[in-house]
Write a protein that binds this DNA or RNA. Sequence first.
DNA 1: CGAGTAGTTGATTACGTTCAATCTTCGTGG
DNA 2: CCACGAAGATTGAACGTAATCAACTACTCG
Lengths: 276, 276
Amino acid sequence: MSDVADYLETRPLTPTAAAVPIVSISALTGAVMSPQAKQAGLAAPDAKRAGVPCSSCAMHSFCMPEGLTSAEAERIEALICPSRTIRNGETLFRTGDSFQSLYAVRAGSFKTIVMHRDGREQVTGFHQAGDMLGLDGVCSGHHSCDAVAIEDSQVCIIPFHLLEAMCRDVKVVQQHVHRMMGGEIVREATLMMLLGTMSAEQRVATFLLNLSGKLQKRGYSPAEFHLRMTREEIGSYLGMKLETVSRMLSKFQKDGLVDTHGKQIRILDMDGLRRV
Amino acid sequence: MSDVADYLETRPLTPTAAAVPIVSISALTGAVMSPQAKQAGLAAPDAKRAGVPCSSCAMHSFCMPEGLTSAEAERIEALICPSRTIRNGETLFRTGDSFQSLYAVRAGSFKTIVMHRDGREQVTGFHQAGDMLGLDGVCSGHHSCDAVAIEDSQVCIIPFHLLEAMCRDVKVVQQHVHRMMGGEIVREATLMMLLGTMSAEQRVATFLLNLSGKLQKRGYSPAEFHLRMTREEIGSYLGMKLETVSRMLSKFQKDGLVDTHGKQIRILDMDGLRRV
DNA sequence: CGAGTAGTTGATTACGTTCAATCTTCGTGG
DNA sequence: CCACGAAGATTGAACGTAATCAACTACTCG
């Protein structure tokens, strides 16, 4: 439910960080389970050790605090369990599951959904490489949403009790965790604003702009990208029906703001979208 | 933006805590400013020292972690600045203000609002005695919403850097802070669900039920209470117009679910409301 | 290549907004 | 204490946006 990277908006982004291409899932190799993964009771049978250490991971700048000593950086690396592969449509965790770990998305994309008792569900967030998942479980010790992969994905597993322990020793880690949680709070408040005050047209425009900004921070083109989610998932996220999403995209097309071909999106007039 | 008490839902509530009446603002006495308040640069000229120490504050069970040693409890008390009085309509902090402290509502009520650039604003939360305010600033170091008193109120000021320091030393304090932040994340996700999937009727019903539950946890009658906010503020919070709020309340009245006289509310059929 | 899923577009309906008039409550000052 | 004015709340009528229902098209994948 969280965007680790959001709080970076308020910090300068290094040019190198923005230019690094995202690691593809096929570039990640598999290996054996670590003792910590067993201890946390979380790594699935298909858990695999990523060949890439944090220090050389492209998402490094999104997950890790700055200003660590090399000893501290090593301690964090030791704390992180082997990454786990989640195939398209599979769930990383479900509502009610015991909360043990946070998950940093290393590659791929997820949606988080909450289910109403009457069966209706709503998408509460989309999460790409560099985002953090699982903070919803911190409060009660149980997850309060489902996290489902919307393409083949890979996550790093961070046992929360170990992270908490490290927070007690290393101030920058503590502040990093607080900022991640705080960022999630702000992100959700912004979304409440969107759901509470904007028209369907404005919501879709805002959605595209937010996604664009997020991709830009990761070194991708902000103007041309591929949607990982369906119209229905977008609609659920934005509090409207899929037909309405489709209509709004068609309208933007007609107005010359974007160029859509199914899931392929090209933003032609960024300012025009902002003015909607 | 936070409800400290929400996470207590998952923990047993002691009968005594539920039975304690809420301290009235008139019961609080004033005194001088502490060195810490000056240091934090936050206490307003009208800051007053609450005569009541945390240990005998009625809201104690909502703000404080359990299982502290007496030395730790003393340290927390020393850390908390003199409380500050905020009159109806005054703001505790504004968007963009530098984030220095959290605020525990000791008496009264607040709303938090976010402002869109086009001037429209939305209420993102209501906060009563026992709730925590200010977590929105943790991420960026600046507040991302305004907190406005909707009746004469009093808050305890908790300098965040001191709280962070204590989190590093005392595990239960750390977990308490994490749970507060996590609780806020879950609260907002629930609200997103409400805004994204529910009809106006269901939203108003849910609002009344949530408020009722919150009051019950504080030892008040869950069936009969006084709304502190206007229809317009409720509407803004629920993503609808004040007229719609009014119509829904009238409808509930007609259906025999509630009895409303202006801001005085009596819930006649709790289950009926839940079934809406 | 065919089945099934995802997406687009049109027609109709319904819910909530908008605009407006009226009523109530509450705070202020004569 | 009551009168007055302002702000808040209620109710009605007309309107508009997005939902619903439905038909059709375009992809994707065994």
